[in-house]
Simulated scan of single mutants.
Amino acid sequence: MIELDGVSHTYRIGEQRTSAIREVDFRVDQGEIVSIVGPSGSGKSTLLNVMGCLLTPDSGAVRIMGKDMSRLSDAAKAEIRRLHIGFIFQSFNLIPVLNAFENIEYPLIIGGAAAGERKRRVGAILERVGLAQHQHKRPDQLSGGQKQRVAIARALITNPGFVLADEPTANLDSHTATEILALMSELNRELKTALIFSTHDPKVSAFAHKQVRIEDGTLVA
């Protein structure tokens, strides 16, 4: 599904160099739920961004669906993201002028899906995440948990191979976070979509199939 082999990335600001991740070997298979834990600044978000083809590493290999990302053009990487990768952001990143239905539909529009197909697929996933009755509401009319459900539905609407989630419960209360994790676990079992989280939340780590820890940019046992 996704494999990192000796991957390193350094941020450069002027003359300053900051090593974010170093010599990372990492693999996620189909249907796995993996949590990446570590303190702030340890490299969790950088690791997710590399896996999501949003950052190009300085060294090492990133392979998605068996394809070496270093051999692909930017346009080809964008196509990989569109077809195979879903993203769930800590701050939801919903488009404020669009309602729930339209936010979920947006990736399908970009992908060129026909209107009837979009309506069918979005309607089905709205039912699945329990938001059919809220589909016409804009993000500012939704609770935090409802926004996260929209974000989950949007990430899954293209049937990606895996979803990257950056602190998915950070802005939710404990009860809502538990509900969201239960929903994602159900969807994981049904769709066989791999889920990869960066998190500080022990509840997220507890529900993952496996946990990896990162400290100072290096994976530790």
Rank of each mutant, 00 (worst) to 15 (best):
I33K: 04
R63E: 10
R154E: 06
L4E: 02
G52F: 03
E23T: 08
I125P: 09
L183V: 06
I152M: 05
H9D: 08
N159L: 10
L55S: 08
V150A: 10
I95E: 06
D25M: 12
T158M: 14
E167G: 11
L191T: 11
A194N: 09
N171R: 13
Q146H: 06
V204N: 04
T158K: 13
R118C: 03
P57C: 03
K210M: 03
K147E: 12
F26D: 00
H84M: 08
L108I: 00
G31D: 14
M51K: 04
A100C: 14
T178M: 09
G123D: 08
N159V: 01
T18S: 13
D74V: 12
V204Y: 03
R128E: 15
T18A: 13
T178D: 14
Y11F: 14
A153C: 13
D201S: 09
I88L: 03
P139H: 07
E105R: 07
V150M: 13
I196N: 05
R120E: 06
E102D: 14
E3I: 04
M65A: 13
A114N: 11
V7F: 04
T218W: 02
L156Y: 09
S59Y: 00
G111Y: 00
N49W: 01
Q90A: 09
I36K: 07
I36R: 03
R22S: 14
E167F: 10
R63P: 07
G66P: 15
D173G: 13
M1E: 10
T193W: 00
T218N: 12
A155L: 04
E102V: 07
K77R: 15
A208T: 01
G14K: 10
K44H: 05
Q16N: 14
R128D: 12
D25A: 13
D140S: 11
F87W: 07
I33G: 01
S185T: 15
P107R: 06
L94C: 07
E32L: 07
G111E: 14
Q133G: 12
L219H: 00
L219D: 01
S174N: 11
V97S: 15
H84S: 14
E190Y: 01
L181G: 02
G112V: 13
K77N: 05
I110R: 14
R128N: 08
M65Q: 11
R149A: 00
A78Q: 05
L48N: 03
M65K: 08
A206V: 06
D58V: 06
